[in-house]
Amino acid sequence: MAITSPGVAHSAPNGRTSVDARRRRPDDTKLALLFILPAVIGLVVFYFWPLARGIWLSFTSWDLLSPSQLIGFANYQRMFADPVFWNAVQVTLWYVVLNIGIQTIVALVIAVLMQRLTQSTFVRSLILAPFLVSNVVAALVFFWILDFQLGIGNQMLEWIGLDRIGFFTSEEWAIPTIALVNVWRHMGYTALLIFAGLQAIPANLYEAARVDGASETRMFTGITLPLLRPILGLVLIISVIGSFQVFDTVSVTTGGGPVNASRVLQVYIYENAFAQFDFGYASALSVAMLAILVVVTFFQYRITRAGQTDLN
């Protein structure tokens, strides 16, 4: 979260505050408590308390009706032996790799194109439009466009001489299709983030490189990519965390199928909680999800060195 914090500084040095303001300083505590009260309620009741409760629940067996029972690590033992869980982990990882891989490349292309071709707010707005509709809307539109019989997508495949594809109905295509739907929704947003990063690269670097006779490709690999790395790193961390939490698109299109082909972790958690009423096991699965996110974020941060920059 480092990217915004240092951006703004106090405008007046503390030493020059007026006598009046200095006299008021100790009084602020009461007022401050009043001002942060609602936010603190929100933080404790809906962030920290659920965090603790979720971990606690993962050590219990509970169906909402009878009282919950503490069962130690039984949920975790079950999880490690559960083939559907491991399948869900694999499916989720496959989704994240496809989604993030394609999305980042496409977004990078869009961002560079925008920087070179046009600064127009209109174009940027068009690019961002899919991000403003919900996952559900995006999923349903593509559910129709890619319908096996009537979808225009499959008609187009036929026109260029390919076989129709059961995008949402075949085991091998379900996850790539869902990944692509979410690429469509997020590519413009990601592109604008990268675009903001591109704008920060000093133009004189390009001027200098051009004077030295560098080619466009050379400038891209020698200037753009290295200087973009910190921002690209942050963008990746944010989008990977979001990507791991995929649910909406799967839920309204395949529902996890065919068989388990698109049963991502979140869908499996939801089913355990709201179809099996097994809240203990669902909580253990959530803890696993949290652990995966923490580990992935940590390594990403280390690998991309997202906090550092080459610019100074």
Partner: peptide
């Protein structure tokens, strides 16, 4: 180059 760095996004 000016020390812009990661903060510029802000």
């Amino acid at each position: 180059a000016a020390p812009l760095g990661a903060t510029v996004v802000a």
